[in-house]
Design a protein around this nucleic acid. Structure first.
Lengths: 207, 207
DNA sequence: AAAGTTCTTGACCGATTGGTCAGGTTGCTT
DNA sequence: AAGCAACCTGACCAATCGGTCAAGAACTTT
């Protein structure tokens, strides 16, 4: 018997297939949200049969839960590593850079998250009000210290974070719109985006 | 026979009921996306029976299409009215202000749009590549003129627009996250957001 | 190579989905 | 108040949904 749960002591096949399923499910859930996705879609996407998927996971909800669980860890990591520094502006811009890289390299994860939030975050609200709020408050206090020390301009730390999150994730979540507006993007639009955001936040933060 | 299509020459009842249905459908589609929404949900939300809804609209897709059609008109209007001015920075900040007001006053429309883009904009791609791109290019050229005249700092006009769209709509689309992070927001969080965004874009644009 | 476990699937189930339809009810016109 | 069109609904349908199950196939262990 397989049935998810314990992530330890797995067969080779179990490891391969669960990963294969999660990979396909990420693709599907990121595109259609939880309610709009079907197990059959995940089956087709992964090349497995529907009963086979349900052999490894206890249901649609269980697959989604695993994806969301993994998500927050990696999603909050860049903010985790935002730490005190003698050059706060560089520190914040490095955070912006990391977030933009994640939007480029993990757009599906970004869209999975966006879909969940957009639909009221029914399966994520506790995480938002707990760990996310705690971490955000902690880093907001750090930024406030920089403000008080006159090292950066007088901005609202929480709204600064919102601006960073929204501008960077925009390139993943609204990627279709970005491409439509830019036309077939000359080279890598992420490079010009990087330059723009760097310029913007440096201008904003300069004391 | 009713059956949508012509918006002219309608009965009182037709006008009332179609509006009632669209109002409910906006609520539902904005929350669950197209695929995740059901006609039954719209029926419950509007207080009408399912067959009655299908008496006024040719199907789920038709309702969604009407909503999307209405959306783009009102959605692009603020950008439409961005025009040449002797004080470009004020002009752009007024645009930011209008966009933020729309995020506050029409969050469901914002989420409907976000859901559609997030899912690849299958029913909106033509509009994006046509009218939206045309309008965006036109206004980007206007902004570029301001840059060339040295009236604002040297920014990429398209990415400036992306930053405006993402930061303002964030307060509608990610409202759950915003509220979770801020805790029960002291007073109106849109006021502090307005101040923050005004500060940010003025700092960015100052020559 | 036999035995035991893990893995896989076609067939199936009840519930929900988008949508239809015949027939009844309501509202407007004269 | 009669007649007609507009409006509304319960019952129904085929397709799809999430999920089950018995039985067979493949892999491991001995």
């Amino acid at each position: 018997m397989a049935r998810a749960a314990a992530t330890k002591g797995q067969t080779r096949i179990q490891r391969e297939k669960t990963e294969q399923i999660l990979e396909a499910a990420l693709e599907v859930f990121a595109s259609y949200g939880f309610r709009g996705s079907t197990i059959d879609q995940i089956a087709t996407q992964s090349g497995l049969s529907k009963p086979n998927i349900l052999y490894y996971f206890d249901g649609k909800e269980a697959i989604h839960a695993v994806l969301l669980g993994r998500l927050l860890d990696t999603w909050l990591e860049p903010l985790q590593s935002l730490s005190d520094s003698s050059t706060p502006i560089d520190e914040i811009c490095a955070y912006v850079h990391r977030k933009l890289e994640m939007a480029r390299d993990f757009p599906r994860e970004s869209r999975l998250f966006a879909n969940e939030i957009l639909q009221g975050a029914p399966r994520l609200l506790n995480e938002l009000q707990g760990p996310l709020k705690a971490l955000t408050d902690e880093k907001a206090a750090l930024i406030q210290n920089w403000v008080d020390a006159g090292k950066i301009s007088a901005i609202d730390p929480h709204h600064l974070l919102f601006s960073i999150w929204s501008t960077t994730q925009h390139y993943a979540d609204f990627d279709v719109q970005v491409r439509a507006v830019l036309g077939s993007c000359e080279g890598d639009c992420f490079q010009t985006a990087q330059a723009h955001l760097d310029h913007m936040f440096r201008a904003l933060l300069k004391p």
